[in-house]
């Protein structure tokens, strides 16, 4: 028996919104530790890694490890039926081929449930080695989304370069070039507005705008975003989900011929 209750169903809805551009379907791996998902987009350029800890749920029970393959468009339809303040309870029997979502309004005066068919998906999991990153940038997630959106107008790729002076985002294309430089700023009163850089050595890498833009769909999940970079290693873009876990995106760099 699997049962997970989340008072803020909107958090799960935000996770779905953040990954549905990249993935059509995905397997949710449920264990006593929580819910995990790891899946690559169809072109194998980016990877989504979601970790929701069991103790972040308001109730969590998983008697037997369970892999639930879901069509994310269908799952999106189910969550579209939920109210912003609803509580969600997910339930599945052992070896079941369906999962049930029950939504309860805050006042408990409306209860709806939706049963969705599960899918058998060929899971391809990658082993991601621990990496000592050359630089780790933490910045407001809204600022990151804004920069990626702005620079995407200029070209298909963005160069992210980081030195001890700060981080620079650059794009170039037919109409010209764009550069945005951010210096470190520590705002002790408003931690979420800070830009912090933990630098071991300078690094500059090129990434496709299309994927970076998709990642920024996770902006509503977290005030801050963490970018981890290292030469010749995929970029890690991480959004912490308060009290529940994290959503990470990995993106393979563009490499000069």
């Amino acid at each position: 028996m699997f049962e997970a209750r989340l008072v803020n169903s909107s958090t799960f809805r935000k996770v779905l919104d953040a990954i549905k551009d990249l993935l059509n379907e995905a397997s949710f791996d449920c264990s006593e530790n929580g819910i995990q998902l790891q899946a690559m987009d169809s072109s194998h350029v980016s990877l989504v890694s979601l970790n929701l800890k069991s103790d972040g749920f308001d109730k969590f029970r998983c008697d037997r490890n369970l892999t639930m393959g879901m069509n994310l468009t269908s799952l999106g339809k189910v969550f579209k039926c939920s109210g912003a303040d609803d509580t969600v309870t997910m339930k599945a029997q052992d070896y079941a081929d369906t999962v049930t979502f029950m939504f309860e309004s805050k006042k408990q005066d409306k209860i709806s449930d939706y049963e969705m068919k599960l899918m058998n998906l060929d899971q391809e999991h990658l082993g991601i080695p621990d990496t000592e990153f050359s630089c780790i940038i933490k910045m407001p997630s809204i600022e990151f989304a804004r920069i990626i959106r702005d620079l995407s107008q200029f070209g298909e790729s963005i160069v992210i370069s980081c030195t001890k002076e700060g981080v620079k985002f650059s794009a170039q294309g037919d109409i010209g070039t764009g550069n945005v430089k951010l210096a470190q700023t520590h705002n002790f009163d408003k931690e979420e507005e800070s830009v912090t850089i933990d630098l071991q050595e300078p690094v500059a890498l090129t990434f496709a705008c299309q994927y970076l833009n998709s990642f920024t769909k996770a902006t509503p999940l977290s005030n801050q975003v963490k970018l981890s970079m290292c030469e010749n290693v995929p970029l890690v873009v991480e959004y912490q989900i308060p009290e529940l876990g994290h959503l990470r995106f990995y993106l393979a760099p563009k490499i000069e011929e």
Binding site: M40, S43, H44, V45, S46, L47, E124, H125, L126, G127, I128, P129, S157, T206, A208, V233, P234, Y250, A252, P253, K254, I255, E256, E257
Partner: peptide, 14 residues
């Protein structure tokens, strides 16, 4: 121009 690499060239399949 830079070529797009894939993740499978960095990470091993489990």
């Amino acid at each position: 121009a830079a070529n797009q690499s894939t993740l499978t060239s960095f990470f091993k399949r489990k």
